Simulated assay, not measured.
Amino acid sequence: MEKYIIPALIGAAAGLFAAYWRTRYAAQAQDLSKRIEELCDSIAKLEELSCGYWDAKEDKSSSHYILGVKTKISLLINYLDEEYKEFSKDKTSDILSEFFDSCTGGKFGSEEVASDSARQRKILITGEKLKIDLMKSRHKLY
């Protein structure tokens, strides 16, 4: 009977250890997944605001508000890169730069901004590419 106690204790300890690490990893993966979802929502918001800005028919969104949303996205990406080893901002930096340039490049912030449908199209395409890249990294968590 005594020869079964030590293996049973070792097995129980190994089971507890495995359950602890699995739960910890799953919670962190879910948190990262939620943050990526939040980031995609912010990207969609910036797409909408920027497309409205480059449309002469619509009332212009404040350029300061658009820059604020852009900064919010940058801060969240930097946070994810620092806090989660599964996330790498280097993988998204090129498309992120292209997206930001399409949103706030050209004559952004000047008094006279003409309607620019090509820029609007570029905003939507690069924004979607960025969200797809983020969803791919999110998918790798599971």
Rank of each mutant, 00 (worst) to 15 (best):
E2M: 15
K3P: 06
Y4H: 13
P7T: 12
A8H: 13
L9E: 15
A14M: 08
G15H: 04
L16Y: 05
A18M: 13
A19Y: 07
A19L: 11
A26S: 11
A27Y: 07
Q28H: 12
S33Y: 06
K34T: 15
R35L: 13
R35I: 08
E38F: 15
L39T: 02
C40A: 12
I43A: 00
E47W: 02
E48D: 08
L49N: 02
C51D: 02
G52F: 03
Y53I: 01
W54A: 00
D55Y: 06
E58N: 10
E58W: 11
E58G: 06
D59G: 08
G68F: 14
I73P: 01
S74R: 15
L75T: 15
I77S: 02
L80Y: 02
L80H: 03
D81F: 04
D81N: 09
E83L: 10
K85M: 09
S88D: 11
K89E: 08
K89I: 06
D90V: 09
D94A: 14
I95H: 02
I95A: 03
L96T: 02
L96Y: 03
L96V: 04
S97G: 08
F99N: 00
F100Y: 08
S102I: 00
S102R: 01
G105S: 07
G105A: 07
G106V: 05
S110W: 14
E111Y: 09
A118K: 15
A118G: 10
R119D: 01
K122A: 06
K122V: 03
I123C: 00
L124R: 07
I125Y: 11
T126G: 04
E128W: 07
I132K: 08
Y142R: 15
